[in-house]
C-alpha cells in the first residue's frame, strides 16, 4: 500500500512529505521508543503520541515509511526540522491514536 493512499484515507495533515509514493509494508502504534525499535518492521508507518525530535531518529534507524502524530498533538519545532533533514514523512491528525491504529488495521496493515 502506498503512503499516499494512507494519507488520503485517514485524512492526514502532512507536515513533511518529501514523497507519498512510498510503499508501506506494515503499521505500528506505540509511545515507547524501545518497543518501536524492537518490533516495528522496516517500511512500517508508525503512529504515536510522542512529538519530540527523537521519534525521527527512531524512524531513520528503522527505515520507517513515515510517522503519524495522533490526537491533535503538534510536533516540536526541531522534530519538523529533523524530519525535513532526514526526508522522513511526518503527518499529524486530530484522530486519536486508538482510531488511527484501527483505521490502519482496517486498510489491511498489520504490525508483522
Amino acid at each position: 500500500m502506498l503512503l499516499a493512499n494512507i494519507a488520503q484515507n485517514l485524512n492526514l495533515n502532512p507536515i513533511n512529505e518529501p514523497s507519498a509514493d512510498v510503499e508501506v509494508t506494515s503499521g505500528y502504534a506505540s509511545d515507547l521508543l524501545s518497543d518501536v525499535l524492537a518490533k516495528a518492521k522496516n517500511g512500517a508507518i508508525w503512529a504515536t503520541n510522542q512529538k519530540h525530535i527523537n521519534i525521527i531518529g527512531v524512524a531513520v534507524m528503522l527505515n520507517l515509511a513515515g510517522v503519524i502524530i495522533a490526537g491533535g498533538i503538534e510536533p516540536d519545532e526541531n522534530t519538523v526540522a529533523k524530519a525535513r533533514e532526514e526526508n522522513i514523512p511526518l503527518y499529524i491528525t486530530e484522530t486519536s491514536l486508538f482510531d488511527v491504529a484501527g483505521k490502519l488495521y482496517e486498510l489491511g496493515l498489520r504490525s508483522t
Binding site: 515507547l32 521508543l33 524501545s34 518497543d35 524492537a38 504515536t48 510522542q50 527523537n54
Partner: peptide, 9 residues
C-alpha cells in the same frame, strides 16, 4: 515521558 526508560534498552 518521552517514551524512553521503559527498561527495554
Amino acid at each position: 515521558e518521552m517514551g524512553f526508560g521503559a527498561g527495554m534498552g
